[in-house]
């Protein structure tokens, strides 16, 4: 009985995360930011862009850019086949496609379960990290995906000065 009530309170504070892998590392992102998961195909290349920006796709009439995280963070092999998956993220006003090695799981985490990340040991700049979490003996890196995707570093969004014009 006590366990049940404890569960209840925990569930209230719990947030669900989608985990995916890039190379050997496992990452977790807020599931509410995920719109859908789909296969990788029919990407139109855009000239003069960094290699990790694969191009744009037609998402039911909406033109959406696609980023290959494996290329961006030099993790895993950037191969494209029928198993390559794309996580379509919905970040406020923007939609972005993100290519990853594989999507693994949906996990629920308590805020306490996410421990602050050390200053090193991750390919991601720590400012985009929320922390680290243990998921069934493995470690998942919890990423603030919105902050990352809208950052200058990704180059997905015009600089502020540009948009102001």
């Amino acid at each position: 009985m006590i366990d049940a009530t404890e569960d209840q309170t925990n569930q209230n504070a719990m947030q669900e995360y989608l985990t995916f892998t890039l190379g050997e590392e496992e990452y977790a992102i807020d599931i509410l930011k995920v719109q859908e998961i789909r296969g990788y195909d029919a990407v139109t290349r855009i000239a003069n862009t960094p290699d990790y920006i694969k191009g744009v796709i037609n998402m039911r009439g909406v033109i959406v850019p696609v980023v290959d995280m494996r290329l961006k963070f030099h993790l895993g092999n950037a191969t494209y086949d029928q198993f390559t998956v794309m996580i379509i993220l919905n970040l406020g006003q923007r939609i972005v496609g993100m290519v990853v090695d594989s999507v693994s799981d949906v996990i629920a985490l308590n805020p306490e379960e996410i421990r602050p990340a050390p200053d090193f040991g991750s390919t991601f700049d720590t400012q985009y990290l929320i922390g680290l979490a243990n998921v069934a003996e493995r470690m998942a890196i919890v990423v603030d995906i919105e902050k990352l995707m809208t950052s200058q570093e990704m180059g997905l969004i015009d600089k502020l000065s540009d948009t102001a014009l």
Partner: peptide
């Protein structure tokens, strides 16, 4: 004509995009 800037940004030399008959995006 579809805007590239809705979800992406301005691209040099490209004024917009469209969707072709096969569902692909053309610039």
């Amino acid at each position: 004509i579809k805007s590239l800037e809705t979800h992406y940004r301005k691209v040099e030399g490209i004024s917009g995009a469209t969707i072709m008959g096969d569902g692909r995006v053309a610039l």
